[in-house]
Amino acid sequence: MEHTLHGITETLEHALFAEEISARAGLFQSLDARVKVISTLALLIGISFSKNLWVIAAIYLLTLFFAWISAIPADYLIKRVWLTLPFFTGLIVVPALFITPGPALLHLPLGLIITKTGLNTVLFLLLRVSASVSLTLLLILTTRWNMVLSALSVLHLPDVLILILGMTYRYIYLLLRTANDMFLSRKSRTVGYLTTAENQRMLAAISGTLLNKSLNLSSEVYLAMQSRGFRGSIVTLKPFKMNARDWLWLFVFLGIAALAIFLGR
């Protein structure tokens, strides 16, 4: 129970911190959300297409520099990426060190051999993932979620899909708070230790109640939408205005992405 409560609180705190960062004065915060979305996508494509390790490393360092001038603590971005990276990417890439054919680099006990090609592959993957995740984090931390969603309209995503994404994000927090209250209420009435079976029963009961609540909520929300004229299709405001500075930065980022592809071909 303690673990779940801690997890929920941590998620809510992360969201609060991200909102606080997006309100700070910094380079990325000052740009139009559409510029940030297009630039991030272009740089992600640049990272994916580049076959040069140094080019990818340069984009990663550039991302850290952009984070720094966007008032994001340098260690925050590095920690968030490198503390989670080994768990997800590491598990996949470790076998590649040994099984990728190529000239031997290091002989280990039990007949294991790290190959030069294997090491190269691992470094590529780790750098690609860290640079890509850092770039995406930079976008999310410096842009309010609703602005990110609105900016997705430049990619010609249907408005109704953008609305659903926004509602999902919005109601996840409401349900997280409800779950938090339910766990706290249970904790306040729990004396002593619960057995694994009791814990599982409690978790199942809370999950069931939450599911029930979310179903009720969704039908009520639909009524609220109907009440204000929703009839299946959606019209949204596009509250964006590009200025000369936004255009300039857009060309800078697109230029960097193009250069990454050219130099790393």
Partner: peptide, 24 residues
């Protein structure tokens, strides 16, 4: 609605306030 969380389903206040006149 009694529960404002039901009524406020958009991602931002601006989207929320503009929702009804846009749909209509």
């Amino acid at each position: 609605f009694q529960d404002s969380d039901v009524q406020l389903f958009s991602a931002s206040v601006l989207d929320e306030v503009a929702f009804a006149p846009l749909q209509l």
